[in-house]
Design a protein around this nucleic acid. Structure first.
Lengths: 225, 225
DNA sequence: CAAATGTCTATACACCTGTATATTAATACG
DNA sequence: CGTATTAATATACAGGTGTATAGACATTTG
């Protein structure tokens, strides 16, 4: 993978390589790119020069850290995914003792959205534009999310003795739905976010009740609709 | 609305206005833009000059028809929405006598996707990037879709004597889910499209079974999950 | 036919983009 | 110390962009 190779290189001990000390790092460039992003500024519209300017370096110095803007974009997605998974993971863990998993996860998700954490915005917004590498990176993060959710679902289903029909599809549906709803929520005033969260919760509950009911009936509902 | 005003102006009888006869029309420009679009070319990356070049006119002539590229983009979305609604409408009508509504609608949707009709691609792909006007146009089309679906759902629920819990949310969930799944399907080889369609159908059935079950139980399921 | 009027083109400007080349600056090692 | 090695810069180029301005062309109207 293109992005992990240099990351691995940096991970080795910084044992006294000759040459000039790096005044700027990949992380600095990522931070500069993040600073430029906003509700009206998407990753795909950022230019190399712009990021370099924001980071306070000459345009050409950019190449010391990334092959092109696309590689930076993938790094951004990587970071966004890691951050989101960590947060949601904590939310799930926290939830088992307190409120329901779906409520606590959804609310955490929406809190993160409101917190103007631009990372989440990237993940939600730009999954379908950009280079192939970029799209694949986003898809990979969705897949991670989906897998973790599926494991949680079957675990919880067993714990509660409820059935679950097509767990993989359930988690896929939930993931896509959450991300789609989150994306539209981004373009709304924050005071409506709690409404959206409630809508999400009802939607998820429908899916869960659906899969449970279908599990009880063996999935053999007629195709009346 | 910005785009309907000039459209209305053109709709008046073309009764002998003085001046030179227009050699190119808005529709020609829209067609040129469509020709440029593709799996690796999104609306937001089209330049005014590029579209003008493709249409065979001087860059400045563009302004005779659209204020800027954004206005063209909104017109594109408009057309895409109309086209999709028409097709899905026919599918729904056709379905009542033949197979299930959800199956027939989903299959029609995916057929349209495979048919390389770029219009649908625009609608699916670029809902979250671009100007505010553009995003609002996409959101409006989704809303149309959603409203029609809701009417259909309550009608069918009454016809079959099944309940339906929170019909508005059901149609919203289905719409967003279909569009999200469709967007990811676009980036996949066509031979996987039928798989995706089957996945969609199961997902939708879960939601429908869920809303029916919740209607029977008055929506008072416990929050175990 | 002439005048008016709307359509289209040509030219030009200022700006921005990615990147190739050459040069300078700073650090580590012998 | 000097030298090798790497980081960062300055300059420059070719090409693209949106759009302002002015003029040419065609067509309807008086």
């Amino acid at each position: 993978m293109l992005v992990t190779a240099p990351a691995a290189a940096r991970r080795t001990a910084p044992a006294a390589v000759p040459g000039r000390k790096a005044v700027i790092s990949r992380e600095d460039l990522i931070a500069a790119a993040l600073k430029l992003l906003g509700p009206h500024r998407s990753v795909s519209t950022l230019s190399l020069r712009e990021v370099a300017r924001e980071a306070g370096i000459a345009p050409n110095s950019f190449y010391r850290h990334f092959r092109d803007m696309d590689e930076l974009a993938v790094a951004l997605i990587d970071q966004a995914g890691r951050s989101l998974r960590k947060i949601i993971g904590e939310a799930r863990h926290r939830a088992t003792t307190e409120r329901s998993v779906v409520r606590s996860s959804v609310e955490t998700f929406m809190e993160q959205l409101s917190a103007d954490e631009k990372l989440l915005h990237i993940l939600l917004r730009e999954g379908s534009v950009g280079s192939d590498a970029f799209k694949r990176a986003v898809e990979r993060e969705l897949q991670f999310f989906e897998d973790e959710l599926r494991e949680d679902l079957v675990r919880l289903a067993e714990a509660h003795g409820t059935g679950i029909y097509e767990a993989a599809l359930v988690s896929k549906a939930i993931t896509r739905l959450i991300f789609a709803m989150g994306a539209t929520a981004m373009d709304m005033p924050p005071e409506r976010h709690s409404d959206i969260a409630e809508q999400m919760i009802v939607m998820l509950r429908m899916i869960i009740v659906g899969t449970q009911t279908m599990a009880e009936q063996g999935g053999h509902r007629d195709e009346r609709l």
